[in-house]
Write a protein that binds this DNA or RNA. Structure first.
Length: 559
RNA sequence: GUCCCAGUAGCUCAGCGGAAAGAGCGGCUGCCUUCUAAGCAGCGGGUCGCGGGUUCAAAUCCCGCCUGGGACCCCA
């Protein structure tokens, strides 16, 4: 299915007009800048506009308004744009035709849940890797933000025609895991009355005590009989499995799922770690110093070199990441990779880009989105730890208190690079005044209207959309047709936070229409407009539901 | 000390080169005998951190400074 993107249509028309004008000597033959299509803030400036004449003025040595007028003369209005005009100081404005808008209502209804789907991705294989929390403990609120942003971004990319893989990188190797294994064994042994101390670097959390007790309860004391090293390994393996299950279930609570749970260990087992290191060596990007193997990133303009293999012989996390990205780009042939990392990994970005380049991969294929931290508040009170467990607030606790939809909406509404305050009081206690409910309420209202119409036996399938002429009706359609534009822009900016803002605008447009226009009328003379408005209402439901689904937020039929 | 992010309405945040700065919450005023008032309409509220610069045009780009957060481990 091919949806016409209005912005692309304008781009094409303006470019064609520039060429035509140059052919006719209305404009000097200078290279035109890219056509930037914008949406004016003021309705009287049209639905879309471009400032190309002003950008062209200097090179063309003409007055911007004059350029605009000449281009406009080559772009007469038609059945898509009712009016195209030049406006000072040098804009070209476009207004969508009311009849075209009416027809879009039918287009939306025809597309149904597929409305907003595009083929701009053209099946490009793109991976979104997000969360990837070490499986040494439960998911906390900070991780949840990346989880929500990543999952929404993946949804939008899929809608835009990309072949998307949603991936969680499981760090099941390395020193953090060793500490986890040893801590778990200690807790397990302690649960059985043994005096095994927690290692110095061990995990203190209460959840480790519980996990240890769980293993003791379910599997008995048989691990105490075996050599401790083996016991640590075996209980650790079981504990890792349980932690992963727990993480998976917690993420499921906010609708976050993955196609692939990629094991760090597999990089070593498959030999890909060795291959990646070999490539770096061959490329002359490594050096041995002080008993360690270094990635010589200073030669590539970085501030410092980075250790790949410690003098102890153990690879660093960075080395694993090198192998992992080798796996992504080379072994799996992913065309684009998008990683969402927490702010604490921000310093890691330059060397990751550098090493990808050193592996012979164009670094622009790797996008790293840094997700800033979340601080929790209840009104004016800063919330750092859970009153119940005395530890950081877990995702599970947050969702249980706030609910999945509000969680997703709030996390999604802020751009990743701004540190956010999450006010649990606002998200829960005042839930009625919550933006999430505002949007969901619009959907429920729509569902209510459609329910009523069906109960009354109205068949609106032959409704005449050309009757839609009220200001509020057209304002609603104007918002509806922006969803495909939004999907397209998110694939470029990789910023899904525009989704909730759009949802709010769409809901506002519907609520206003609802206020202005009676949909299901019992007056016989209103039969035709009732059918047309039912079509519009149904279309609005499609777009609103689709927007909510892209955000992973429920679209309730009743509230 | 170096690097990254942020600083916009009382609060939480959008906008990130274009035409008179936006939303939600909070405050004030109106609107329910027909489809959900979890709604609508209106009012009030801003030196876009500060100072320079670039540009026809700067909240938006560049430089410097201030404030807050984060990162600078042979941790991940």
């Amino acid at each position: 299915m091919t949806v016409m993107l209005i912005s692309h249509e304008i781009d094409a028309r303006v470019r064609a007009a520039v060429e035509e004008a140059q052919r006719r000597d209305l404009l000097p033959t200078v290279a035109p800048p890219d056509v930037v299509v914008e949406r004016p803030q003021k309705p009287e400036h049209g639905d879309f506009a471009t400032s190309l004449p002003m950008r062209l003025a200097r090179a063309a040595r003409m007055k911007p308004l004059e350029i605009a007028e000449r281009l406009v003369s080559l772009m007469p209005g038609d059945d898509v744009f009712e009016r195209v005009w030049a406006a000072p100081p040098g804009f070209i404005n476009f207004v969508l035709h009311p009849r075209w808008l009416g027809r879009q209502v039918d287009e939306v209804r025809r597309a149904g849940e597929g409305y907003g789907n595009l083929d701009v991705g053209a099946g490009t294989r793109v991976q979104v890797e997000y969360v990837s929390v070490n499986p040494t403990g439960p998911i906390h609120v900070g991780h949840a933000r990346g989880a929500v942003l990543g999952s929404a971004l993946a949804e939008v990319l899929a809608a835009a025609g990309y072949d998307v893989t949603r991936e969680y990188y499981v760090n099941d190797a390395g020193s953090q895991m060793d500490a986890f294994y040893k801590s778990l064994y200690a807790r397990y042994a302690q649960a059985l009355g043994q005096d095994v101390p927690l290692p110095p670097e061990g995990y203190q959390g209460q959840y480790m005590v519980e996990l240890g007790q769980e293993l003791a309860r379910e599997l008995g004391d048989r691990f105490l009989a075996m050599p401790q090293e083996q016991a640590v390994r075996e209980t650790g393996e079981i504990g890792l499995g349980r932690m992963l299950e727990c993480i998976q279930q917690d993420l499921e609570m906010i609708g976050v799922r993955f196609d692939v749970w990629f094991r760090e260990r597999s990089l070593y087992q498959s030999g890909q770690y060795n291959k990646a290191m070999g490539l770096l060596r061959q490329g002359g990007h490594t050096a041995e110093r002080e008993g360690a193997l270094w990635f010589t990133s200073t030669a590539l303009g970085e501030d410092k070199d980075n250790v790949l293999v410690r003098s102890s012989g153990l690879p660093t996390y960075f080395a694993s990441d090198v192998a992992y990205h080798y796996n992504k780009f080379v072994e799996r042939g992913l065309q684009r990779v998008i990683n969402l990392w927490g702010a604490d990994h921000q310093g890691h970005v330059p060397r990751m880009k550098a090493v990808v380049g050193a592996l012979g991969i164009d670094p622009s294929r790797l996008h790293i989105i840094i997700v800033q931290m979340v601080s929790l508040r209840r009104g004016d009170e800063v919330v750092k730890v859970s009153k119940r467990t005395g530890e950081l607030i877990t995702l599970r606790e947050l969702v249980e208190e706030v609910g999945p939809d509000a969680c997703r909406f709030f996390f999604l509404a802020r751009s990743p690079e701004s540190q956010m305050d999450f006010d649990m009081e606002l998200a829960t206690k005042q839930s009625a005044d919550n933006p999430v409910y505002y949007v969901q309420y619009a959907h429920a209202r729509i569902a209510g209207i459609l329910r009523l119409a069906r109960e009354r036996g109205i068949d609106w399938s032959d409704g005449d959309v050309s009757l839609l002429a009220h200001e509020a009706e057209l304002a609603l359609v104007r918002k509806m047709v922006l969803l495909p534009e939004l999907v397209e822009s998110i694939t470029r900016t990789l910023e899904p936070h525009s989704l909730p803002h759009y949802a709010l605008e769409l809901a506002t447009a519907f609520h206003w229409f609802y206020q202005q226009c009676r949909v299901v009328s019992s007056v016989p003379e209103d039969a035709a407009i009732t059918k047309a408005r039912l079509k519009l209402t149904e279309g609005a439901r499609v777009v609103l539901a689709r927007t909510l689904h892209l955000m992973g937020v429920n679209a309730p039929d009743r509230m």
